[in-house]
Write a protein that binds this DNA or RNA. Sequence first.
DNA 1: CTGGGGAAGGGGCCC
DNA 2: GGGGCCCCTTCCCCA
Length: 441
Amino acid sequence: MEISSHQSHLLQQLNEQRRQDVFCDCSILVEGKVFKAHRNVLFASSGYFKMLLSQSSKETSQPATATFQTFSPDTFTVILDFVYSGKLSLTGQNVIEVMSAASFLQMTDVISVCKTFIKSSLDISEKEKDRYFSLSDKDSSSNGVDRPSFYSGSWQEESASPRSHLSPDQGPSIVSGKLWPKYSYHTAPQRNAQQPLANEHRKDALKKTKHLRLSQPSQVVHLKPGKAEARASDSSSRVSQSEEQVQIDAEGDSAPAGFQYSQGSDVASRSFPDDLPRLRFKCPYCTHVVKRKADLKRHLRCHTGERPYPCQACGKRFSRLDHLSSHFRTIHQACKLICRKCKRHVTDLTGQVVQEGTRRYRLCNECLSEVGIDSLPADLEAEQQCVSPADGDKDSRWHLSEEENRSYVEIVEDGSADLVIKQVEDSEEEEDEKEIKPNIR
DNA sequence: CTGGGGAAGGGGCCC
DNA sequence: GGGGCCCCTTCCCCA
């Protein structure tokens, strides 16, 4: 006979013990804040702690201490609360950091929930688009700045704080003298308690700010009306505002993983032009809207910081394959037939490739003699390297197999700087780069 | 301090 | 949906 409430009751008891610091035999130090927990609970919840505590299992009589510095105490609070309650308090602002921390701690369940959270937000974004379509006709007379009743019901609207009340550190909402929208996602208990960005993510926030500044006008202004009108064919499916509102409210409540969607004072999204129906996918982190899901996936990398394409020559990582290709052609293959010094057009007859560290560039024979740098012979092999990956046979010239994957040293020595494109899991490599050095005593 | 050039990175869109 | 190209903007370095 199984008593279903036993598990939750046990977890509650453990959580209570944690809160009261009863039998806690493990301390986790996160940016100076100490968290107390139970060794066995951490062991059972995190692959990372399992590894750590396994290594220190011989010293079980001693209290264990782990120190982390790359995620904030707030983030670890979310993680630890999940461990002891099974409830993950995600918001649009902490989901990235929580997922990053969970990745480091090897908590696959949390990672999955974070992914679901992001995915659900994308779905919601699409629904929001649909809702806009239903409203755009009625609101066409508005100036697009002030529509206070646009969001209601379960769609929480955050009040637009006056610009003078906010500092630049308070996120990407205030940019270039304009009030940009701020999106966040809340589980029900946290809808009014957004967590500030951690210090180490301020840079990311600034980067997002930059991105917002760039992307914001583009979705509203930089559209081509001709094409848009031709493709705006789904207006027949529009429903009235009230009907749509009800529909959205219902959908919002039934969003995957029980997340609710909260949107700030969305200036831009309230001012969609008439040709926007062709844009379908809305970024959950900014106001950017794209037509294709693949484009949104690509766009999301600028928020997540994911860079799955490392350069095999210099190690620099890129978020996009074409950027990697461009980088490799420019930096490591000297494909530009321009003398770097005098900027004149050069050929293999009038110039040569110069190797300088990991970089390659061309110099004309005249500049070459002036500079006196040793050049690489412009042989047939070098000529082949300069073939654009799009132009030639990918298998033979660009995408080399794993067996052909050579170290950079070898690449330099034999003068064949071929690019090996190897997509890697961002989280895996970056884990190694992180400076988290837990200290078990 | 400033302007120019190169590289990086983001978006649109075609194949 | 992925790959890739083109265009544009921004950042950084250097003269």
